[in-house]
Write a protein that binds this DNA or RNA. Structure first.
Length: 603
RNA sequence: GGGGACGUAGCUCAAUCGGUUAGAGUACCGGCCUGUCACGCCGGGGGUUGCGGGUUCGAGUCCCGUCGUCCUCGCCA
């Protein structure tokens, strides 16, 4: 914008307040030019007789110098919006600000116009320390003025833009799918929207465009993608918002390796364009069972070792009753070697509290040594047992080894917590390293805790490894799925699967899930019918863009890459959503409040 | 729904064991200052200690309830 505006500068009226340049672009090469800048008053320095203003816009900060003739300048306050016309001048060498890109020059003001007055802001845009998140969310427009937040949003935009370009190069067609759609029976809670035209009926907001994208494959679109907003009415976390964004895609006539290779090309291109980072492909693949066994997690941080080891065989030989008890109850004895860490007794005991997060009742520790070592486990590691345990855990003398004996799920989860805690405490990882892993071979179904009905581990449209589903009477729990996750540095970045394209297989899966013929017809009749008109084998994937943008920006909370995020109770503090509505509005959509809702609604 | 942490000036925080008129920095307002860039100096205003109740001679501080924020477990196909 600046070049064309500047070139027409000769034609400008003298009182034209509109900018000729941004606040980030003036350099020594502009010295002598008459320019106009628009922006916010970032900081002021009044020296009586001479007055400095740091003028800020998204592009940068330029120092404006106002002479004694600008008596009105002293009434400027932070965050006022002004227009300044003047001449770009070189600073004396002693006055150059090397910290700032525009620091070699300054704008000698000749004309000053106040475009908009600002009240004293509740957020100091210039400060390095942050106000409470509550304040930041309420005055989000001020929070977003902070250069750090603008950097985050620009980063997100570049990341998505690069990814979109990559998909277009790969021949993918961007298709929008409805936001007002139909409730799904499984998975997360749906956000519902009442229908005015159809009394008593409701739309649901999509948890993902899953069914639509499969139908686009049936329709022959071949390669679809979309930057898709998804909605799930579940409780929030630092990495979870109720409305979030995915790069959603689907492709026809493919198997797993085609999807992996495509995404590896897309991610290589995206990281190169948006971050200047060269990723190494192919990303290592990890079976779900192996991930759980080595890391105790299905989304491992593979940037460091400290892997879990099974020490059951050793435990049986030892005299430690706690270990024996766990094994007798069908549990596991798992361990990890933290290495030679200089932990105090107190620090070691703190690890027990970390392990408890995963449900472990205790965390046994042992400072390894062939002579028997030290710690609570030392007296059970006498003689040859010490050397044997050291060998099992690849331990050197002095290494701290940690043990959990419990049910498999508890032992894994607890040691995973310990492992991640050690990562942070010992700074074991490089935040700039991106360790991608494809996690494959998930079970197709899992059972609820009571051992009652089966649930899809991924979703009910996921293809089984064996199209026959093991035949009649087979154990659903033994079936393998063709779903996959992409994990990076301990975060699940996305997931996908090869889908079921045969209606009879889809029917059988619904049957196992306990979705009867009537419900099947009502909820998915259209999908089953679509599959019956010639469906190509297809599969796809969806990448969480909020998480991806946050991780690549080095942030651990996705709110910092979302312009208008919600609080932990799913509220928008700026616009005060959700909010009660007028009774007439409710009547229009055939809704009557009851119970608690009635008490809390507007008067 | 459960657990933990927090809520004091516009903002960030302090306030000993329950005890004088709740302080500081910053921001804001007024004054001074011609080379600052976290400018500096002088002065000033600013408080329902989230809200409600209780204990006490006395509550920012202790107790109960409630609202809000964050993290987390459950939950999130």
């Amino acid at each position: 914008m600046s070049s064309s505006a500047a070139s027409s500068a000769a034609a400008r009226r003298a009182d034209d307040w509109r900018r000729t340049h941004t606040c980030g672009e003036l350099r020594a090469s502009h010295v002598g030019q008459r320019v106009t800048l628009n922006g916010w008053v970032h900081a002021r320095r009044d020296h009586g007789g001479i007055y400095f203003v740091d003028l800020r816009d998204r592009h940068g900060i330029t120092q404006v110098v106002l002479g004694a003739q600008f008596s009105e300048a002293v009434r400027l306050s932070s965050e006022d919006v002004i227009a300044v016309t003047g001449t770009v001048v070189a600073r004396a060498p002693a006055n150059v600000n090397a910290e700032r890109e525009t620091g070699a020059i300054e704008l000698m003001a000749e004309r000053l116009e106040l475009l908009s007055k600002a009240k004293t802001p509740p957020i100091d845009v210039t400060a390095s320390d942050l106000p409470a998140l509550e304040t930041r969310l309420k005055y989000r427009y001020l929070d977003l003025r902070r250069p750090a937040m603008q950097k985050n949003l620009v980063h997100r935009a570049r990341f998505i833009s690069a990814m979109r370009a990559a998909f277009e190069r790969e021949g993918f067609i961007e298709v929008e799918t409805p936001v007002l759609t139909k409730a799904t029976p499984e998975g997360a809670r749906d956000y519902l929207v009442p229908s005015r035209v159809h009394p008593g009926s409701f739309f649901a907001l999509p948890q993902s465009p899953q069914i639509f994208k499969q139908i686009l494959m049936v329709a022959g679109l071949d390669r679809y993608f979309q930057v898709a907003r998804c909605f799930r009415d579940e409780d929030l976390r630092a990495d979870r918002q109720p409305d979030f964004t995915q790069l959603d895609m689907e492709m026809s006539f493919v198997e797993e390796e085609d999807v992996f290779a495509l995404w590896e090309r897309v991610l290589v291109a995206t990281f190169r364009a948006a971050l200047g980072v060269e990723l190494t492909t192919p990303f290592p693949r990890l079976r779900h069972a192996e991930a759980m066994e080595r890391y105790g997690s299905d989304k491992p941080d593979a940037r460091f070792g400290l892997e879990l080891r099974d020490v059951a065989a050793w435990a049986r030989k030892s005299e430690f009753k706690v270990f024996h008890g766990a094994l007798e109850r069908g549990g596991r004895v798992l361990a990890l070697n933290a290495g030679n860490v200089p932990f105090s007794r107190k620090e070691v005991e703190e690890l027990g509290a970390i392990a408890a997060l995963g449900g472990a009742k205790g965390l046994a520790w042992w400072k390894a040594d062939v002579g028997g070592g030290t710690g609570p486990l030392a007296r059970f590691a006498a003689g040859p047992l010490a050397a044997e345990l050291m060998s099992l855990l690849s331990a050197q003398a002095g290494d701290l080894c940690l043990f959990v004996a419990d049910a498999q799920a508890v032992a894994r989860k607890s040691l995973n917590e310990v492992r991640l805690h050690l990562r942070n405490k010992l700074r074991l990882v490089d935040p700039k390293q991106f360790a991608f892993r494809w996690v494959t071979h998930f079970p197709l179904f899992t059972r609820d805790e009571e051992g009652g009905r089966w649930f899809s581990e991924h979703h009910p449209f996921t293809a089984p490894e064996d199209w026959s589903l093991g035949g009649a009477g087979a154990d659903p729990g033994a079936l393998m799925s063709r779903s996959y996750d992409l994990v990076m540095n301990g975060w699940e970045l996305g997931s996908g699967s090869i889908r079921i394209h045969r209606p009879e297989v889809q029917e059988r899966v619904f049957e196992i899930l306990g979705i009867g013929p009537e419900e099947r017809q009502e909820k998915f009749g259209f999908l089953l019918e679509a599959l019956s008109y010639g469906a190509p084998p297809h599969g796809g994937f969806a990448l969480g863009l909020d998480r991806s943008a946050a991780l690549t920006a080095g942030l651990d909370n996705i709110r910092d890459v979302i312009a208008f995020p919600k609080t932990a109770s799913a509220a928008d503090l700026m616009c005060q959503a959700p909010a009660p509505v007028r009774p007439e509005q409710l009547a229009e959509v055939h809704i009557q409040l009851a119970g608690q809702a009635l008490k809390k609604s507007a008067p």
